[in-house]
Nucleic acid binder design. Structure first.
Lengths: 190, 190
DNA sequence: TGAATTTCTTGAAGTAGTTCAAGTTTTTTA
DNA sequence: TAAAAAACTTGAACTACTTCAAGAAATTCA
């Protein structure tokens, strides 16, 4: 079922039927169990991942040995380490599924051929990554200007359903505070 | 002098002479004095800015009335608010020159025509924005894992020259600590 | 050049968060 | 369905930073 990806692409560019055919022969979807790693720290990242179903995250392990989530990806999001991908340098991140997932993993060579066969896709990936970059800037703004409690409530208001999907400690680290503090915020003990 | 931009583009794609001609007729460079604003909070951002010479920054004013710098751009960097640009929503940011600058401001309509005339440019902007997004992720990693002092030394090691170019209080806010604390770090009083 | 403005420094007091340790609850798995 | 593992909670002690206020130094510009 590549449909979700094709639909996502068609939000930004118009594909010919022949191009859809090409995409269907080049891409395939795979099931990935919860907690499996798509990328390990130290590996060179040579794939982009599109989440068809489920949830994945990018995280690191800090100097105290605690996991800190830097990014989540749910349905219709791409996730990867673009720096490692483009520079062929070892990644600083782990990418791991948080739920059982259906994922389209696009290998670098495959993508390069696709971009040559269907140059319009350059536009799709340009727009998607420019929007992602914009979102990352807003994220930094929120981290800079809001208190821990404000960040929690703000996120919770914008994404009430998502908050139910992931363990609290992952969300706490994504919002840059400790799991214990999250507990206190939720209990109103702060 | 569009040369720096043309050189930057040619790092990622090969341009025909005819395409260079098109670029030269569509783009123009302007001088912008230090401390002028390229974008004000609340405006819809409909331009991309390429810094040919000088330094600019993206900042916000927080609830205490203090400026916080979210991003710097120097020679050969693009700066804009992609979220406002793509969604036509009012920007949450200011973009301001930090030094006297030479800037190529590309208006949205101009860029759309250029991308139609020279589709290869889609590739250029895709790669540039994917790399920027990668850099933003690393930035979040450093903010999450390093202490204020570590962030300062790390940044200073990577960009010793740049540190001399901007006021300390701007760099302090970019690294997410107070100007006073920056002073103490530099004096070794911490 | 000298006045005005901007930037940097310093110390003292305060606080938003962390850390630790132990216990409880929930979920997963065999 | 019992045992194991994962996730969440709680309070007490701590700390990395902020805030404030005031003065000193450097830079800008008329």
């Amino acid at each position: 079922m590549l449909t979700p990806l094709l639909d996502h692409i068609e939000k930004f560019i118009k594909l010919e039927l022949s191009e859809i055919d090409i995409l269907e022969t080049c891409l395939n979807i795979s099931k990935v169990k919860k907690k499996e790693h798509l990328l390990q720290e130290g590996q060179v990242c040579n794939r982009l991942y599109f989440i068809v179903k489920g949830c994945a995250r990018q995280y690191i392990i800090n100097s105290k040995g605690t996991e800190q989530t830097l990014q989540f990806a749910i349905e219709n999001w791409w996730i990867t380490d673009y720096l490692s991908y483009h520079n062929n340098t070892p990644s600083s991140f782990y990418i791991q599924t948080v739920e059982n997932c259906e994922v389209i993993a696009v290998e670098k060579g495959t993508l390069e051929s696709l971009l040559i066969e269907i140059p319009k896709l350059e536009r799709y990936f340009r727009i998607v990554s420019q929007k992602s970059f914009g979102a990352a800037q807003m994220r930094i703004k929120f981290l800079f200007t809001m208190s821990a409690e404000e960040r929690y409530h703000h996120f919770n208001n914008l994404n009430p359903d998502f908050v139910q999907r992931v363990p609290q400690y992952m969300l706490a680290s994504y919002l840059d505070f400790s799991a214990e503090f999250m507990s206190k915020i939720r209990a109103g003990k702060v």
